[in-house]
Structures are given as C-alpha cells and as structure tokens.
Amino acid sequence: MKNWLRQHALCLAATLGRLTRTPLASLLNVGVIGVALALPLAFYVVLANVQGCARANAPTPQLSLFLKIDAPAAAAREIEARLKKHEGIAKYRFIARDQALADLKASTGLADVIASLNRNPLPDGFVVDAKENSAAVLEKLRDEFKAWPGVEHVQLDSAWARRLDATLHLGRLIVLGLAALLAFALVAVTFNTIRLQMLTQRAEIEVAKMIGATNPFVRRPFLYYGALTGLLGAAVGWGIVWGGLRLLNDRLAGLGQLYDAQLRLTHLSLPDTLSLCLFAATLGWLGAWLSASRNLAELEE
C-alpha cells in the first residue's frame, strides 16, 4: 500500500515536471481545453442567472378558490382553518361575497347591471399564495384544494410558469448538448496529445516493457497528465467566464441604473465549480486512458 502510494506520488511529481518542461505545448493544450469548456460554461452561468432572476422578480402566481354559492359561513371558516395549517402556503386572503360584489361595482362601471340583480351571484373566495411557485407544485395544490368540501372551483394562472419552465428547460438542453460536444472535444484533444507523447517516448516505453514494466505502470504518468491538463483547462475556462462576467457586470450596472434596477450576473457556485473540475479531470483521464491503452495494445502486436 505504501509502495503503491509512493509510486503515485512519484508519478504525479514526474507529470508536473513534464508539464513545466514543455511550457508552451502545455499552455496551448490547457488553453484549448479551457476555451472549449468556457463556451458551455458561460451559457450555463447566464442560464442560472436568468433562472434566479425570473424566480425572484416574476409576479407570483396565485390560486383563487371559489366556494359553492350557497356555502354556509361555517364552510368558509373550515377552509380557512385548513389553509392556515397547510404547509405549502405562504399567505392567503379571504374575500367575502359581499365584498367581492362591492369591488366589482366600484371597479368595472357595471353598477347599474349589478344593481339590477336581485341576488349576489358571487361566491365567497380565497386568494392563495403558495410558498413554491413551480408549475408542478401549483398544480398539485390546485388538485388538492379541488377535493376539499365546499369548494366549487379553483383557478390557477399557471401559463406563465409553464412558459418559463419550458424556456429554461430548452436552455438546459442546449447547455447539455454543448457540454456533450465539448466533452467529446476534450477527450479527443487529450487522446491526441497522449498519442503524440507516447510516440516520442516510444523507446522508453519499449525498454520499460522489456524489463518488466506492467501496462498500468506505463499508462499511469499519461493518465495523470490527462487528468491534470483537464483540471487546468477547467481552471482556464472558469477564469475566462470570470473575466467575461466582470466586463459584463460593469456594463450591466450602468444599464441597471437607467432602468432603476440592480443587474448583476453571479459566477458559478462552489459546488458547481467543483463539479466542473471533477468533470474536466475525469474526461482528460478518460482521453488519456483510451489513447494509452490503444497504444500499448499496438505495441504488443
């Protein structure tokens, strides 16, 4: 075990040495990977910001509960009690039928028509704000309310929530597609780099194999190299997006002032940054593994 750890430590040191011995080639390699990663990353960051912004600023959708027209006052009280206890509800407001009629009279200019009615056609009602505003949650609440006794109709304006969700979903799909394409690019770049490296070190690999090196021993430094370039590439991509955001935020602040709003794009969260690093390092490792294994197989023929 100790021996194994030592071999890995040695290997990591040798890999770092190799990276610094050929600074220009390493820099270009890392740069290519960084640029490739920056594109989907930037898209993702913008998307995450839009998503956060939309959630924060959009008017909250409300659920309107209408009771049966002949519902007794007790039914309204019972529903109120239920709403109070309900965990998914942020706040609610009771609108008595008389109040509703008075509002209608005052706001619509239909006073004459309404006056001519011999009884109030409006039911008691509640206006409910949910804690979570995703379409799925709201629809679930609607279905739940519908089942309560004394409730005649529940109205939910979920169209905008659906539209927003669909748009964000599309955005995420585009990010995923881009990420997949560029993941492939990352694997291809490392595959090629490692192939070239192994060609230049062919003599050494052949000797090592003849005097008893196992395939994992030969492969290991290349795997480290792949993972490390992936990781550094991720750092470069992160840096590119960071720089872009800084430039953009300066402009956005000016624009925001004109509109009297605070506009600011935030960078990747720490968990997202860590997953980015892991993702890039894994892909670099994968490209190197494919390349090294293929090369070793060719050697053995």
Partner: peptide, 13 residues
Amino acid sequence: ASALPFVRRNFGL
C-alpha cells in the same frame, strides 16, 4: 499477458 512483466523481472537484459 499481465503476468509476463513479473517473469521478465527475473532477468537483467
């Protein structure tokens, strides 16, 4: 094939 490297270590070449 994976055992061959260990055989090779018996030799100085």
